[in-house]
Design a binder for these strands. Sequence first.
DNA 1: TGGTGGCTGGAAACCGGTTCCCGATCGAAG
DNA 2: CTTCGATCGGGAACCGGTTTCCAGCCACCA
Lengths: 340, 340
Amino acid sequence: MARPGPRSDRTAGPTTIGDVAAAAGVSRATVSRVMNGRTTVDPEIADRVRAAAERLAYRPSTLARSLSIGRTETVALVVPDLGNPMFQSILHGVTAAAAADGYRVLVADTQERPEEEAEILAEARRRCDAVLVVSPRAPDDELAALLPALAPAVLVNRESAGTASVCVDYAAGTAAVLDHLVAAGHTALVYLAGPGGSAPDTWRRAALDAARSRHPDLSVTVLDAGGTVDDGHRSAARVLATGATAAVCFNDLVALGLLAGLREAGADVPGAVGVVGFDDIELARYAVPALTTVAVPHAELGRQAWARLRAAVAGADAPETLWLETRLRERASTGPVPAP
Amino acid sequence: MARPGPRSDRTAGPTTIGDVAAAAGVSRATVSRVMNGRTTVDPEIADRVRAAAERLAYRPSTLARSLSIGRTETVALVVPDLGNPMFQSILHGVTAAAAADGYRVLVADTQERPEEEAEILAEARRRCDAVLVVSPRAPDDELAALLPALAPAVLVNRESAGTASVCVDYAAGTAAVLDHLVAAGHTALVYLAGPGGSAPDTWRRAALDAARSRHPDLSVTVLDAGGTVDDGHRSAARVLATGATAAVCFNDLVALGLLAGLREAGADVPGAVGVVGFDDIELARYAVPALTTVAVPHAELGRQAWARLRAAVAGADAPETLWLETRLRERASTGPVPAP
DNA sequence: TGGTGGCTGGAAACCGGTTCCCGATCGAAG
DNA sequence: CTTCGATCGGGAACCGGTTTCCAGCCACCA
């Protein structure tokens, strides 16, 4: 009798391929062929197998199938913090795109604990066909050392030789913001910097430097803030103390927190201080005043990340980094610099 | 030689237990015992095995291990829409709680397509040890028919005989909101109803009816809105047309949309109309005016859902439904009814 | 010195699928 | 009527682990 035969005596678990084979009077191999739509099976037998499968409510074990064919049809997404709307929208996008191709997404967050990041990534990768790594804190060299073991992998907002990347062109976005503010007459700005060492923050800082050389009379004070609403809220006093006429924030969460802090401090936005964010999360347009921000194409990011994951799983070489363009959304939180 | 022996000729995949066994000169069984910390192995041999495993960078295949022991140490979370912050925070909570016990979370959304819900649930369940089902649209009887095949499963904001549930006591929250508004002098209210047929919406409506009998002079107009920011935004004119002095919204997204719509229409909040939401998403307190809402203990919900999942996986019977208490957060979007 | 009992570790079955290989069967061609 | 080739489907190996069962070894005791 075939090995995982009909479990007559055993405690009844879910029906296996052996049960179906026995019920249809064929071998397990034939059941497998029928279930996978191989055409080399006599239609009459195929019908019998399908009937038996139906009657026994047979569902092939995903696990056994994955082990056998060497694919799980699952990808992992590892993010630093699932509480951040930016990462949530990446999750949303990639989940939708992957689902369209029959793939599932396993999600893990590193809870901002860089020391466990390597282990979490490796573990997540082992359960899946590929892993999507979103902007981890790990230093470049550590990441580079880690990636070969994770392949196939795709990076978001990060680059490393030999691994595909999808990045948002925050530098261009930052340049657009600064040019916009300068054109409106602002010369004294504040940049509320994000978590230290993250690539997107580094790109923004580089764009700041470039802008300073483009506009010699532009002064930008960099304040370390962080990436949360509270970080922005807490920074209001420091922003006002600089005397800047506009604040560029690491992301929309920080910007929304800053708006709240400025309102509590009695500072008019944009009358006294303009505020700009990054990401264009859904609520940016409902803030008061509506937040000027740099829109990131979230859905497109998810789609493209999935496309690269799919290609990587199929064994394709890492293509060039895709740089997604941002768009400045001018809303009510910025305006011309007030007359002195 | 042991079966999955050292793959000398084959294309080199990741190292298997057979490779380690061969390198250490022991059987696969012994490697397995060492890797799982069985103490019945001679320390000298154990060291040799560990050294070989280390040298070959051996990582046991999660897949094979799961198939063998019959556990995946993964749970599925199925939600109607990953774009909704409420579901995102449940994901966040349950992911954190599960990770603390070494479990991973697979996420799927049904994209609000009820007809595929059954298949998505079944498929997600098959890959995992259990499934957390968040408030699906499926009618009660369909859900009840589905659940036995999904067990172990846990429901959120939904009940069904024989399955554990974690529910938010929206009825009590609604009652608290209505009593609060009545005490402030409001007698003409609007309820912006959520997606039809969802259990939480039904509970809120039941609480409305109860409040109407408690307060005979209270009138509540029910308007079908939906569950998104846009739905709230679009409803502003209809809310004003009713002449109500306060609007109770299905959730915070609708409330925030309504706030924006009312502002555009020139209606003062709370001067002309009060607005109340549900869920207390992070940005509710940063809205202008800050949103009065019914706070749901998101983190607690995630923790408790995980606790029940864990118990269900361990084979425990479904405990009684846990009803999580809400708390009314009075902020600036509601106030006393204006003098006529 | 032989019997008994406790440990240790290897062989093999098992989890539930997929797929290679090959024998049997059948139709068609010579 | 035989032979050849194509087709169908069963047996068995395989994916990479875990676990049961048992043989072999050693110590201890009569």
